[in-house]
Simulated scan of single mutants.
Amino acid sequence: MGADKITFVRNYSDLSTDQGFQFEFYCDRCGGGFRNRFKPSVTGAVSGALDAASSLFGGVFGKAANMGERVRSASWKKAHDEAFEEACAQLKPDFIQCPRCSSWVCRASCWNNSKGLCKDCAPDLGVEMAAAQANRSVEEVWAHAAMAEEDKNLDKKQWREKIRASCPNCEAPLASNAKFCPECGEKLKFQENCPECGTKIAPGSKFCLECGHKL
């Protein structure tokens, strides 16, 4: 590396080979990555040519290959460090460090620009609201699926009626929607309000005086 230190992501992969240099940098939050363009290595190409000549002819070419390997080792590392610096400079604008959690995140998907924080520290409220609504819908589906069949049959009309748990005459327990007491035969249901408009109705009425609904 050069004299100047480069502050950048901790998540990266070195894809360099003897033939050249390439690096991948990753977002701490989503794991998405960016890869710089492959940069050929001059020392790697020369070393490869000497190795090929050595395998064919040996002798002086073999000695040259060994010497080239020692030279390549130092020059390749220097070129590698320079290539890494270039890759950092090239890809750093695609990342930003969150001042709250210190994570390096990609600007494209994981940065809340309006809050100046990563989306782990400052979630996108629109996305969170949509997720909350979706979760609520799922909860309602499961709640409906768990309802007893008897409860599913309670329509708007039945919800407006008074439902008793015991007979007003003998206090015997009653099944839901019972019209007569199974013990004493007491008539249980009397509509005090119109199931359509809610208007109070008089005993014995066959139609609602307000909306004309048949009782």
Rank of each mutant, 00 (worst) to 15 (best):
C181S: 01
E186L: 08
K157Y: 15
G185Y: 03
N113R: 13
A146T: 06
A178Y: 00
E192V: 11
G116A: 10
E140M: 15
D155C: 03
Q191T: 06
W142M: 13
A108S: 13
S166P: 00
A175V: 05
S114A: 14
V138R: 15
E192H: 13
A108P: 05
C194R: 00
E186D: 07
N169Q: 09
L174N: 00
R136A: 14
E183V: 08
M147K: 07
C170M: 01
D151Y: 03
R164L: 15
A122W: 07
E183K: 06
K119F: 09
D120V: 11
A143L: 05
A108F: 11
K179I: 07
C181V: 00
K162W: 12
V141T: 15
P182Y: 05
E183D: 03
K119L: 07
A172T: 03
A146G: 04
A132W: 05
P195I: 02
P168E: 03
K162T: 15
E196H: 08
H144V: 10
D124P: 04
N113V: 12
Q158I: 09
S137N: 13
D120K: 06
N113K: 12
F180W: 07
A143V: 03
A134D: 08
G185D: 03
D124T: 01
M147T: 02
E140S: 06
A130D: 08
K152M: 08
P123I: 00
S137R: 15
G198A: 07
E128G: 02
A165H: 09
D155M: 01
